[in-house]
Simulated scan of single mutants.
Amino acid sequence: MLREYRDEDAARLNQVALAAFRQFHEAYDDWPAMAASIGRMSVLSQTSEIIVAEDHGEIVGGVAYVPAGAAKAAYFDPHWPIIRMLVVDPQARGRGLGRLLTEECIARARRDRSPVIALHTTPVMSIALRMYLRMGFERFRDALSIYGVPYGVYILRLA
């Protein structure tokens, strides 16, 4: 079940985010700094709409939908909504939750009448990248590397 984030979800969402990224720890030059950032996913609720995936009352995934006009990294067009920090607990993977959360962000971009939605990801996250490409996202340009890991901006045209 998908639902809107609530303040009391912060600790669990942050745990899920860390668990989701932990498998990539060797790819980042400074994993402790990256982990510190990921472990604060809940602060995105101040500037984004966070959607959580829940299974039997427990949060097993989440994503931030950053609307058009909200502050975002300079490699994104400020008029685009973006998908940020898609995370699924490793124990809940393989059930389509990542796709479901992504589809919800796309639905919100359509609700907001945006002609495009964007995200950034890395080839290191091969499963997520393949999912985005299957959903129709296309590589748009390079983004800044994060702790030594190359990232790219991907867009999905909605109009």
Rank of each mutant, 00 (worst) to 15 (best):
E103P: 02
Y75D: 02
D55L: 13
R108K: 14
A71R: 06
Y65W: 11
A71F: 02
G69R: 08
R99V: 08
I127Q: 15
E104W: 07
Q91C: 10
L101W: 03
R111E: 15
I51Y: 05
A118E: 08
L97D: 04
L119I: 12
L133Y: 06
I82F: 00
I59T: 00
D112E: 15
S114L: 10
I127R: 15
Y65V: 02
G62W: 03
A64K: 08
L119G: 04
L100G: 04
S114T: 08
R113W: 15
Q91P: 02
M125P: 02
H56F: 14
G94Y: 09
R111G: 11
L119D: 00
I106G: 04
V116F: 13
V88E: 05
I59A: 03
H120R: 02
E58A: 12
R99G: 07
D77I: 09
K72P: 02
I50G: 00
D55F: 01
D55W: 03
P81K: 10
W80R: 15
L100T: 12
D89W: 07
V124L: 09
D77A: 15
I82G: 03
G62P: 05
A109V: 10
A53W: 12
L119R: 01
V116G: 05
R93M: 08
I106K: 01
T122Y: 04
R130A: 14
R111Q: 15
W80D: 15
R99C: 06
P115I: 13
A64S: 10
T47H: 08
M125Q: 11
A109Q: 06
D112A: 15
A74W: 07
H56E: 14
I51K: 01
T47F: 06
V63C: 11
V52R: 01
P81H: 07
R113P: 11
A107W: 09
G96L: 12
I82T: 14
L119P: 06
S114E: 13
G98P: 05
Q91N: 12
D77M: 10
G69V: 10
I117F: 05
Y75C: 06
T121M: 07
A68P: 09
H120W: 09
V66W: 03
H79E: 15
Q91M: 09
P81Q: 12
L133W: 02
A68W: 06
E103Y: 07
S126M: 11
R130L: 04
G61R: 04
H56G: 13
A128I: 04
G61W: 07
S48C: 11
A64R: 06
P115S: 15
S114Q: 15
R113K: 14
L129C: 05
R93L: 03
I117T: 06
D77R: 13
R99S: 07
Y132L: 03
T102A: 08
Y65F: 15
A68R: 09
V60Q: 08
I51H: 06
L100P: 01
F76N: 12
V60E: 10
